[in-house]
Design a protein around this nucleic acid. Structure first.
Lengths: 147, 147
DNA sequence: AGCGGATGTTTGATATGCCAAATATGTGTC
DNA sequence: GACACATATTTGGCATATCAAACATCCGCT
């Protein structure tokens, strides 16, 4: 064991491979969105008209990252942005019909890849994997505590 | 279970949190490198004078990603780039004394965070976690097969 | 020698993320 | 009603990735 950072390296590499694989699978299936963008569309399909901040909390991303994602989704015609009449600071985001078509295409791919991840492992192992992953967000959240 | 992409989301989020945490820990310890850059420095400390392609294979990153990483490391004075006299296509990268100091600072942080990841889990659980992570790279490598 | 294909690296365009600062709007208090 | 503070979003700068295309160099074959 020459490198003591194996876990870190493994996690980064796994995530990157997964992202690349998902994006090429999506595009191979004729989807025009990326995985990150499809995440937004899933959330809007589930409940339409969410605000930027709401999306950033659900995605666990910085607000400014959401701005970029929505910019690209809007440019592609998959969402629209309306400022809330009751509180004009809020920008409510709505999925469009074309966005809905898109998220349905993405769902197939994502569901399949999700299954592929589990292949070769028992349900118990997958559960362990999940619970370790779940520990990262509270453990390494450098944002909330110091505020 | 409304979202069927839980595993994917969990993995991406865990990786992002870890990256942010590591980068702020590094900078808090006075290191001037990021975690990605420290990965390069580790490899060069272990064996100096590696080529770009060698680095890209070891990091499992695209060649052009390495170009950027080395550009920034070189600008910061932590590595130097020399074209190989025997084969001038090759660019050999060497860690500098300042780069060595830097990697030693980084090592402390990285080793500590690596331990933190395991906290709250048994050695068995960590092993399972590792083996699932290790399955990603062969499973989702869209690069080599189709070439 | 010299052409043509293989190999190594960089460049340019794009997507994702972060942070800090700017901007816009709302709210509460004197 | 106006000022101060809080909240929501965007902007600008940067780091990290990808891909495809350009460029540089080498190697083998005629």
């Amino acid at each position: 064991m020459q490198t003591d950072d194996r876990l870190i390296y493994l996690l980064f590499t796994a995530g990157q491979k997964l992202r690349n694989y998902l994006n090429s699978a999506l595009s191979a299936e004729g989807a025009k969105v990326t995985v990150a963008q499809s995440g937004i569309l899933f959330l809007l399909k589930q409940q339409n008209g969410r605000s930027m901040t709401e999306l950033s909390q659900l995605m666990e991303l910085d607000n400014s990252s959401i701005t970029g994602l929505i910019d690209r989704l809007e440019r592609a015609g998959f969402v629209s942005r309306n400022s809330d009449p009751a509180d004009r600071r809020l920008s409510n985001v709505y999925i469009t019909p074309r966005g809905l078509e898109e998220v349905n295409k993405a769902k197939v791919v994502i569901r399949k890849v999700n299954e592929e991840i589990k292949e070769g492992f028992t349900a118990e192992q997958v559960d362990t994997f999940k619970s370790v992953l779940k520990s990262f967000s509270p453990k390494f959240n450098s944002k909330l505590p110091s505020r």
